[in-house]
């Protein structure tokens, strides 16, 4: 897509940014994240239907952010990640330019968050068919069937934490699973330890998950682990009517205390 290269080259040439986070051809027909810092590198930037990774995860990494002002080639998932990271004050509003890309229309620059919010307000967020089917199946199960399903899946988890590392919202400088004095979550990769870990992660993402499904995409064991936070996102819609990652002024329902909270859920 020549337009992306043109936008990127111009942004670098005018000195507005020093690095463009985007996608390039990888090995054996795969796509890889790519970081363009000069005109020649901009030629490698591409965007097509394979570019599904949520690149927002790179925005706060020292390896990329230390190289100066950043622009990012952003699909819908990445944009929602950017919005949420801004809400949670992990990136600054004026720190970034998004090159909004989709396989339907020409890429364009978004310099303000209003631009991103406007763009997102015209989009529909839909799960892919296989996720939708599996989620429907899970919803239709009895609690004990669901428990069996997840426990069987949990047995395969090898605790590589790729789910956490791939997630833009998993930015804690020290993850609770790595605290061992005292140890909150067993380190052992078995059913119990793995279940505790994934429940903890899903609960921490409740109301924060931008539904990109990246955690499930990277799982080397093909565990549909993304369906846990995505299911909780549905719950948040029911409880609070909120969708995450569409407006920088959105609420942080699960981490905000208000005096008038009814607390009736405590029973």
């Amino acid at each position: 897509m020549d337009k992306i290269n043109k936008i990127a080259t111009e942004l670098l040439a005018t000195g507005k940014v020093q690095i463009i986070i985007g996608y390039a051809e990888g090995s054996k027909g795969r796509i890889r994240p790519f970081f363009a810092r000069n005109e020649k590198e901009c030629e490698k930037l591409i965007f097509d239907e394979r570019c599904v990774q949520n690149l927002a995860v790179y925005l706060y990494k020292e390896e990329t952010s230390r190289r100066g002002q950043q622009a990012i080639v952003a699909n819908i998932s990445t944009l929602r990640g950017i919005i949420r990271l801004t809400t949670e004050k992990q990136i600054k509003e004026d720190d970034l330019i998004a090159i909004i890309a989709s396989d339907k229309e020409q890429p364009f620059e978004a310099h303000t968050f209003e631009d991103i919010e406007n763009y997102l307000s015209n989009q529909t967020f839909q799960l892919n068919e296989s996720d939708k089917t599996l989620l429907e199946q899970l919803n239709a199960m009895t609690p004990s069937e669901r428990r069996t399903f997840w426990q069987n899946e949990m047995e395969n988890c090898i605790r590589c934490y790729a789910c956490r590392q791939a997630c833009p919202l998993c930015y804690c400088s020290q993850c609770v699973v790595e605290v061992n004095q005292p140890q909150w979550i067993p380190a052992t990769a078995n059913r119990t330890g793995n279940t505790e870990w994934h429940i903890m992660r899903a609960m921490h993402l409740a109301g924060r998950c931008v539904e990109c499904g990246q955690c499930g995409k990277v799982c080397p064991e093909n565990i549909p682990i993304h369906l846990l936070p995505i299911r909780l996102a549905e719950e948040m819609k029911i409880l609070y009517g909120s969708t995450t990652g569409i407006s920088k002024d959105e609420n942080c329902e699960m981490s905000t205390y208000k005096h008038e909270d009814t607390e009736n859920f405590i029973g």
């Binding site: 790519f34 590589c160 934490y161 790729a162 956490r164 590392q165 080397p220």
Partner: peptide, 22 residues
């Protein structure tokens, strides 16, 4: 630059032998 720092490469590797004590 693109490495996200997960453990997949080491865990799937037949030779990686680094370990942590807990």
């Amino acid at each position: 630059m693109r490495c996200i720092g997960c453990n997949i490469c080491a865990f799937v590797c037949p030779v990686c032998a680094c370990f942590d004590i807990q």
